[in-house]
Design a protein around this nucleic acid. Structure first.
Lengths: 219, 219, 219, 219
DNA sequence: AATGAATGAGCCTTCATTCAT
DNA sequence: AATGAATGAAGGCTCATTCAT
């Protein structure tokens, strides 16, 4: 469909031996820790290498440059997050719309609680380059799939969402949760907050169901 | 009553001669341009000074350091945006709830359209320091006031919102719009996008009206 | 004898009006205060001007550059110190050798007590340029005169001292006192310390009297 | 007993490869040369690195900052000087009081002769910080030990000196010699000058011996 | 005479990256 | 494969000095 966008290269050497794989893991873990502890300002290649317990030379044997480390970290975190969301949606025991939404909200809040700074820094850095779009692709695809399922699955609760609707709903939820994290709101983990996020999403979806013809532009 | 919170100091010298005021303006304008053109990475004090047409020494005569320039710029942009929102709410010819919300959405989108990168960089930088909360204060106050008016004004369309509701609504809207800006979505200025944002807000407020007792925690 | 060394110029404008004289006084007083408070590191022309209550432009109307301020300050302090020593020697009620020496020691200790840092900084700065010798000239002359008087005056206690002897005696006394000041010795103002300085000088002079022929090289 | 006083840190990296040790040596040598040639004013990190034949980055890999270079240089020079004095006292073929004193005077004069400006600058810089006292400690200890030996050794020429006496004698000698260096006196290396320094010290010690009870305050 | 805004050379320091071992 | 010493471009910032008002 879409022309296969040339993937940005991050690795310099593909690790074939197990020791090498461990080294890469150590570097990414070190990178995440540095980011978490000191934000982007503390994220220097020397610091990452030291924290990872490898020499700076070794780091450069596996990553072409500083940004490659960041990018690899972003990809890894993205995959973990996607897995979490997928598992949450699949394993929800409440198959109603509200039940699924609530499960998703919980996953997102938890995703933001651990290593907030690392995540934030990664996202910032990624967006600051032009690479955001590429990385977002799998996320968007995933949400689109989930949305489609919600709309057209066996339960057929909703019609398929337009790309604008999908975008608005997902980003609105993420935005509210992220703001609560960044502003360190005390109610972040409260039931009341969770309820309001759910209410936001559900009422929006209900409104679309009630008036589906407005703004129909299928993705 | 409470001691007026000590504002974070950005200015080093209070301009007494008219020339000096122009210089400060030029520096902030230069800073915005640099940010717009090259993002945070290009934002060096030397670059700002050069773009502003002043010497680096002059820049440092008015700002204690690099961050002070960023902070001053953030404050300025914040005030402009607040003024815009206020004017939009006051001057809306459609006094209905949807009319008011739509006016607000337009202002916010427009606020982000001009100099997107500059705004983005400013926001990023501000949040990276701890100052975000302080700067957010007037914004939050403003939205709270607007929300209260919506709930309790002559039209009394809605009951007063709880702090979680206020937070979720404002951050959800801002989050969706900001994401569209940061991800450079083509539909940013489309009618469809605006409609969906409005739908999000209105349906949420309607849901609250229909079931106000849930999660009542007045701010 | 010696070719009259061209005096280093410090003043740019000779103050003829009283207001100008006050300005110069204020600047030198400001310079001394800055030096005293923060040492040479804090001694910036802008700081001096501000402390003096004049604009930086005014400072440069009276002094060609930063060093000129330092030099003028050094000259002023030198003259004050010389005056003190002279008065002490003249006004001593104990005309014996020990009495005169003791009077001198007291003056020197006092001279070092007030504004130690300012004095130290001035001396350092002066020596760092090549100007030390020039400034030392009047001091040396004064001590030589005092020494000569001690040796050949009406009391004729001692033979005239050679230039090495004069040098060793004066610098040894100054060195011991200065070290006590710089190292902040608690016994600086004690009677014991004063006694030992006096003993040092008197025993040295006595030794010269006892064996004058050794090292005879009249200045 | 007492916790070992935390030494002020100057080194950033402990050299593990032999190349690194050479680099540190080169930097300190370069620093001394720069200081010697141009005084403290010429002592910039870039100049030192260039003179040492290393890059500025390398300099900062071994020293935390500019002052650390100065401090390390001071320590090194101090140790060399102490070693010289010790060797001179031990190896003197004339065991008389005058013989020992003369040996010491020669060492000190020689210590001050080579690289006068470097030494001067180092001392100035060290004193300008608060570190002077710490650095002086080993010197003071050494002189105290030497003094004690002179007073109480097998030869028992003198009674033990009080702290004021020790201080006055050592600082007087150092002061006279240092002044001759700083003022660039032509007689610095003359026999006459050396004789007078010796006479100063010996006559002072003799006077103490003759009247030991005055000002007895054993250190 | 005085003011103070403006200037800019130059200093200290960091950190991504290379390469000899 | 790994190490870590070395590099140097580049950036933040200071402060002596000038000059238009």
């Amino acid at each position: 469909m879409a022309k296969p966008r040339q993937t940005v290269e991050t690795k310099r050497r593909i690790p074939r031996q197990s020791r090498a794989a461990e080294t890469v893991t150590a570097i990414l873990e070190g990178a995440a820790q540095i980011l978490e502890a000191g934000g982007l300002a503390a994220f220097t290649t020397n610091a990452v290498a030291e924290r990872a317990g490898v020499s700076i030379g070794t780091l450069y044997q596996y990553f072409t440059n500083k940004d490659a480390v960041l990018l690899a970290l972003a990809r890894q975190e993205m995959e973990i997050a996607l897995g979490d969301v997928g598992r949450a949606l699949g394993g929800s025991d409440d198959p109603s719309l509200e039940g699924r939404v609530r499960a998703m909200v919980r996953v997102i809040i938890n995703a933001f609680r651990g290593r907030q700074r690392a995540r934030k820094a990664v996202v910032q850095a990624i967006l600051a380059q032009g690479i955001g779009i590429e990385l977002m692709a799998p996320v968007a695809a995933f949400i689109a799939a989930a949305g489609a399922e919600v709309g057209s699955g066996p339960q057929a609760i909703l019609p398929a969402l337009s790309r604008e609707q999908l975008f608005v709903m997902s980003r609105a939820m993420l935005g509210a949760i992220r703001a609560a994290v960044l502003e360190e709101k005390p109610f972040l983990r409260s039931r009341a907050f969770e309820d309001e996020i759910v209410r936001l999403a559900v009422s929006y979806l209900d409104a679309i169901k009630a008036d589906p013809d407005r703004n129909r532009t299928t993705a």
